[in-house]
């Protein structure tokens, strides 16, 4: 390389060459020291030496400052991430605690209501409706459907056909509803009329809470729910998935299932009707949005 450069002392300068030659010229002419040093006398006085020393000191200073800056930034980033993780964990714990509180309070409200009603038939009707709506825990006989991801393909770029996706769960749940299931839960998450089963990236979310492989779908319904479910096209389809792609799929009639209550849905648009005689909140916080 170097010899070639020396062989062409007066190589062409100017705008002509292509982009590769631009990089090549950087390589061959790294600094301007080379160009006409022979013609120009190099004078070194005390002043220029001092300038060089100052510049060298500045360079050293700069390098250290940059080094320390980088070192200082690294633990800060890790610290921030740790803080975020701690925040997430504490918020999740707080959410769980508040959820428990809400359930406890809901039970209190229910027992107080039953007391006030003093009418067992009416209270029972209300309880039944709450159970149907998914707002109360229920128990009964039914079926447990378990689906799980098949083995991953050996070629990582190949499509993973054995993976359970949100639509698989939706199909199974809808089939169970159509067979007369009265209550369904996915991984202990009770479904209501407004529940959403959807995918976010690779995760499946039920009411915005992630559920994980293997997915256990429990349903309470008519006595022969398991047999009827096995006779549906859905079950056949999943049997085929199981044979072809290794997806796990089992249907089991299960007695004495207990399904938890779903959290009460928040009211976004509707406002509770105030009983006659009460003064509406002047700020309108409940309905004025």
């Amino acid at each position: 390389m170097r010899r070639r450069y020396e062989d062409e002392p007066d190589k062409q300068r100017g705008f002509g060459p292509v982009a590769v030659d631009l990089l090549a010229s950087f390589w061959h002419d790294p600094l301007d020291y080379d160009t006409d040093a022979a013609k120009r006398p190099i004078r070194r006085t005390r002043f220029t030496r001092a300038l060089t020393a100052v510049t060298a000191a500045v360079i050293g200073f700069l390098l250290v400052v940059a080094y320390q800056h980088t070192i200082a930034a690294a633990p800060a980033n890790a610290e921030i991430r740790d803080q975020l993780i701690a925040d997430i964990n504490s918020r999740q714990a707080e959410t769980d605690r508040m959820q428990d509180d809400a359930e406890q309070l809901g039970e209190d409200v229910e027992s107080l209501r039953d007391e006030l009603l003093g009418n067992d038939a009416e209270a029972e009707a209300l309880d039944n409706q709450a159970a149907l709506a998914g707002l109360a825990a229920v128990e009964g006989d039914g079926v447990t459907v378990t689906v799980s991801d098949g083995p991953k393909p050996e070629d990582p770029s190949a499509q993973d056909l054995g993976r359970v996706i949100d639509r698989d769960i939706q199909t199974i749940v809808n089939t169970l509803w159509s067979l007369g299931a009265e209550a369904i839960a996915i991984d202990e998450q009770r479904l209501t009329a407004t529940s959403a089963i959807r995918a976010a990236g690779a995760a499946i979310l039920v009411d915005f809470r992630p559920v994980t492989d293997p997915y256990t779908i429990t349903a309470i319904g008519p006595p022969d729910l398991a047999r009827e479910f096995n006779a549906t096209p859905t079950a056949h389809t999943f049997d085929n998935y199981s044979n072809d792609y290794g997806m796990g799929f089992t249907v089991k009639a299960t007695d004495d299932l207990t399904l938890p209550a779903a959290p009460a849905p928040p009211l976004d648009n509707a406002a509770p009707l105030l009983p006659p005689g009460t003064v509406p909140d002047p700020s309108g916080s409940a309905s004025g949005r």
């Binding site: 790294p30 600094l31 301007d32 020291y33 080379d34 040093a37 120009r40 190099i42 070194r44 220029t48 030496r49 300038l51 060089t52 100052v54 510049t55 060298a56 500045v58 360079i59 700069l62 390098l63 940059a66």
Partner: peptide, 30 residues
């Protein structure tokens, strides 16, 4: 700035070894 400073250092050392080191050029180029 760090990259430019490193460039100046290497350029200066090279020029020194080539016996072409020039204080003024070193300072001005940096």
């Amino acid at each position: 700035a760090v990259i430019a400073a490193l460039d100046s250092v290497f350029g200066g050392v090279r020029a020194r070894l080539d016996k072409k080191f020039d204080d003024k050029q070193f300072v001005v180029s940096f």
